[in-house]
Design a protein around this nucleic acid. Structure first.
Length: 645
RNA sequence: GCCGGCGUAGCUCAGAGGUAGAGCACCCGAUUCGUAAUCGGGAGUGCAUGGGUUCGAAUCCCAUCGCCGGCUCCA
């Protein structure tokens, strides 16, 4: 039978024989063997064999080591090597699952005691030994019955559980040396193809992610086709550590989370608060321009409000418990929506008024389990850049498009031009009828398609009152963060029975869109800190200019210059201390101040300034007005947008 | 919440049963020095909190709180 390989031609392959029997033949054509293949979105490795029926019209797409997908083969095999190493060192260990991931691979393994650093070291050595032996892998398809017997003999309880859930009557197993694992592949030809591997950490993980199940030990590692790539990856990890917003937040005095105040509760220090203030002002300005109306609402409300809204039925586990006063129960707000309903309800609404857009930087409190808190990215009190849009059904799509437009505008301003978009559909616990949900989901879909945005469906991940679009933004290091969310809601308007008078003089129910563009200011600022590595663009830098004197003689001139810049509205600090210039530059550099103005006798004589940027560029003898003009443009939020386009 | 690790001056960290230390920051003094750390001096912590073991605990044990890495969950 013939088999086609894209770009390499046709080959004679006998049914039942693995692809790797073709290697001598293929080597005649190319010196570079593919790592594996792809067919109809499925990965196929050299160990696959086909029957006659499979082979009809089969054309494989080769995957070479330069292709990102080749890493899946590599890392999957690396995880098997890891499992083999653990089994050799700890024969009683029981294997869970061991898949490749975005960045590497892991294997979940049950053992009577946790693996510590020492164990990890030993395991890594063993892994390297196994790689060095360059063991060939084998793939076999066996019946479920046979698999059951095999893994019973091996006492692999978790594998037995997996076998029972596999849909086909046959399952595949991969082996190397005396190690065998239930696995659908794909894998490398042999362990020696793993050129660089490193085990990174161990952590507990529930079997199948369910907290009712026993806990296994998850060993994380990563692997590459070359040592250089591994080195690059490890350097990237270092870079991530350097950019950690918790570390930078402390160093740059942006915010603090104090044990005495409470976990997940943020204090904005002056330097962080000014950034937040600048962003908030910009945000308000843009919203007012785009037809939103600004409102303010309280932080607590009577418990009954949350009964009506459905939060107490569907969201209670995320809410702080209520407090009683004068026989009435109050509730700290986890969302702003019910309040905006009351803004809407201030008067009888006409169809002519729509769309009505209320926005608020609303601070909400949500109870998050202690183990999930993480710096600014996951907190218990946060301020959403929230808005609720009330509109008619015929306006829904247009409004959604405008919201998408606005969110893309905001993200661009902050340097985020890439994102992943998810459409989250109806969850298990929901309010309203399935028909209404379908309608809402369709509206979101249409808006995305109108804008030509690609998206993935996230089944069952909607909020209890409606489906949503989430945007995950990609930062400079290629990591994704969820910030923006756009939600359609047909339900809460119904629960609060809000209406408007239509053209037909009858009551109608408006539709509500909930949306947060930056998400929460806390999380967004956390992401911003990491994205800019603390070196904020000029318009949001807490200190924009630092004035450094060379000797005490120029302090007077320094004060004069500082005054000029302050009067122009720039955020200026001075360092007139009796220290060497080098020292002052070093400090300003560490504070990541965009511009240092350096003043000595020469500058004073000519009434000019010397400027040093935080990137080390020096411009001597600048006229003050000239520099002011330059930084005035740079002080605009849209400055970077225009620069890059 | 669960699993593992950690918790020493404002910050970064050393000390691992014999009574607490370094660098930076801070205060004082000298120096007035042109693009990433000038020199000298001084003050400051009783080791997250509570309990226990011991002649003696920052060091060992237990509990609580918090943080870190994961699991689960989310803006």
């Amino acid at each position: 039978m013939k088999i086609k390989i894209k770009g390499l031609g046709e080959f004679q392959l006998n049914p039942g024989l693995p692809l790797k029997t073709l290697i001598p033949e293929i080597k005649k054509i190319t010196s570079q063997l593919p790592i594996g293949f792809k067919h109809n979105h499925e990965y196929i490795d050299w160990h696959y064999s086909f029957n006659e029926k499979d082979l009809e019209n089969l054309e494989l797409e080769p995957i070479f080591s330069s292709n990102k997908e080749a890493l899946i083969f590599l890392r999957h095999t690396a995880s098997h090597v890891l499992a083999q190493a653990v089994k050799e060192l700890f024969p009683e260990a029981k294997l869970g699952i061991g898949p490749p991931t975005e960045e590497g691979f892991y294997y979940d393994i049950y053992y009577k005691k946790p693996f510590d650093e020492e164990d990890l070291k030993k395991i890594e050595e063993k892994v390297k030994e196994i790689i060095k032996k360059n063991l060939s892998l084998e793939r076999r398809e066996i019946s479920k019955e046979e698999a059951r017997r095999l893994f019973e003999r091996l006492k692999e309880d978790f594998k037995l559980e997996l076998i029972e859930e596999l849909p086909n009557s046959k399952v595949s197993i991969y082996s190397q040396e005396n190690f065998v694992d239930l696995c659908k592949g794909p894998h490398l030809l042999s362990t020696g193809e793993i050129k660089a591997v490193k085990l990174l950490s161990v952590a507990g993980a529930y079997w199948r992610g369910d907290e009712r199940n026993p806990m296994l030990w998850r060993i994380y590692g990563t692997a590459f086709f070359s040592k250089e790539e591994l080195k690059e990856y490890l350097e990237r990890l270092e870079e991530i550590k350097r950019r950690d917003h918790r570390k930078l937040g402390k160093e740059l005095e942006l915010f603090t989370i104090e044990e005495d105040i409470g976990p997940g509760l943020v204090i904005w220090l002056p330097k962080g608060a000014i950034i937040r203030n600048i962003i908030e002002n910009f945000w308000k300005e843009v919203h007012l321009k785009r037809g939103y109306q600004l409102v303010y609402t309280p932080h607590i409300a009577l418990k009954d409000l949350w009964k009506v809204s459905g939060h107490l039925d569907f969201y209670a586990e995320n809410m702080f418990p209520s407090m009683e006063l004068e026989n009435r129960a109050y509730q700290l707000k986890p969302m702003n929506c019910p309040f905006h309903i009351y803004v809407y309800n201030q008067k009888r609404r006409s169809y002519k008024e729509f769309p009505i857009r209320y926005c608020e930087l609303g601070t909400v409190y949500r109870f998050e389990r202690s183990g999930v808190l993480h710096g600014l990215l996951r907190v218990r009190g946060f301020t959403q850049d929230d808005a609720h849009i009330f509109c008619r059904e015929d306006q829904l799509e247009e409004e959604l498009i405008q919201v998408l437009d606005l969110v893309i505008y905001f993200l661009k301003i902050f340097g985020f031009s890439e994102y992943k978009i998810f459409l989250s559909t109806r969850p298990e616990k929901f309010v309203g009828s399935p028909e209404i949900w379908d309608k809402a989901e369709l509206a979101l879909k249409k808006a995305l398609e109108d804008k030509g945005l690609e998206y993935e469906i996230d089944p069952g991940e909607g909020v209890f009152y409606g489906p949503k679009i989430d945007l995950k933004i990609k930062d400079v290091l290629g990591r994704f963060w969820q910030c923006s969310t756009i939600q359609v809601d047909f339900n809460i308007p119904e629960r609060f029975d809000i209406v408007y008078i239509g053209e037909d003089n009858k009551f109608h129910r408006p539709i509500m869109i909930h949306r947060a563009l930056l998400g929460s200011l806390e999380r967004f600022l956390g992401v911003l800190i990491e994205n800019y590595a603390g070196a904020f663009p000029f318009w949001i830098a807490p200190v924009q200019i630092k004035i450094l004197t060379i000797t005490d003689r120029t302090i007077n001139y320094g004060e004069k210059v500082a005054e000029i810049f302050k009067k122009e509205g720039f955020r200026v600090e001075t360092d007139f201390r009796n220290e060497k210039l080098n020292y002052k530059i070093r400090i300003a550099q560490q504070e990541k101040v965009p511009y240092m103005i350096i003043l000595g006798d020469k500058e004073e004589q000519n009434q000019v300034i010397s400027v040093r940027t935080r990137r080390g560029k020096v411009i001597n003898d600048l006229k003050i007005e000239e520099f002011i003009n330059q930084i005035k443009t740079e002080n605009q939020p849209e400055y970077l947008l225009n620069e890059s386009s």
